[in-house]
């Protein structure tokens, strides 16, 4: 799914949090949204998911204005996971994954073989089969994240929005999530992900958008947008960037005075 963001601004209580964002995401790309805390990453994701309405500008999904989608239609095409997923009761992983089918079923329709087929598929993709009967609240951070991604995938989305899916995860689990993200985009899904780890973002993302104080500072392939100058300007840190054997390392030195 192609996402076009045209001249979008958003203000919260008269306070502008996003200013004139122009951004196009091609189908099948993994876009990393990076930027300091409070730079507007989550707000941008909430605007794309339709949770918030832009105070100016438009967002198009495959050239259709976002506001033309009914909530159910939208949830059949777009899945979004926020940073925190509080679950109030002891639902099992299986039950949570089944909620992902809600957009495709009416209140009265029974659980079909097709629904079951999809639930099993996403459990395989996310390696959550063995967790099916566990309570969602008894899982470790990595397992939990995989279970929620499974729920989002059960929606059969063409666009997946993830807000810091690797936060609080150890190194191995961070890689697991990003490998999964890459695998999904290779199958044609468009994925937009807010993330803090610049190395992981550079390694896995096709495109990177850098936000600072509500403005889009840079957009392009990670290695070309992440420069010593940009890091200094956006994060206020002086650094040394080394390219070696195709890999890319950022060595932060110190805060700018």
């Amino acid at each position: 799914m192609k996402v076009q963001i045209e001249n979008v601004s958003f203000s919260y209580d008269q306070q502008p949090t996003l200013k004139n964002i122009d951004l196009t995401v091609e189908p099948g790309t993994l876009l990393a949204l990076v930027g300091p805390n409070g730079s507007g990453k989550s707000t941008l994701l909430n605007l794309i998911s339709g949770l918030l309405k832009p105070s100016q500008g438009h967002i198009y999904l495959d050239a259709v204005p976002l506001e033309q989608f009914k909530p159910q239609q939208l949830s059949q095409k777009l899945a979004a996971l926020e940073q925190e997923h509080p679950v109030s009761f002891d639902f099992t992983v299986q039950e949570v994954i089944q909620w992902g089918r809600i957009p495709h079923r009416s209140r009265f329709s029974p659980w079909t073989d097709h629904d079951e087929h999809i639930a099993r598929n996403v459990m395989q993709t996310t390696k959550t089969m063995s967790l099916a009967q566990r309570s969602i609240r008894d899982l470790s951070g990595g397992e939990r994240q995989r279970a929620f991604i499974a729920m989002a995938l059960a929606q059969e989305p063409q666009l997946l929005l993830l807000d810091e899916p690797t936060a609080h995860l150890d190194l191995k689990h961070q890689f697991e999530i990003l490998e999964l993200a890459r695998q999904l985009t290779q199958q044609g899904m468009t994925l937009i992900m807010a993330i803090h780890d610049l190395h992981l973002a550079a390694q896995y993302a096709d495109q990177m958008a850098i936000l600072n104080e509500g403005e889009l500072v840079q957009h392009g392939p990670p290695t070309s947008v992440l420069t010593e100058e940009t890091i200094k300007a956006v994060w206020n840190i002086s650094s040394k960037i080394v390219h070696k054997n195709g890999a890319f390392y950022i060595f932060p030195r110190h805060l700018q005075p």
Binding site: P71, A79, A80, H85, V87, F108
Partner: peptide, 23 residues
Amino acid sequence: GFYMRDLNALSLGESGAQHLGIN
């Protein structure tokens, strides 16, 4: 009874439920 399935999904929080097309 007809609302109980959606009430289950509300355990994800109001915005979580909204992402599933529930109002």
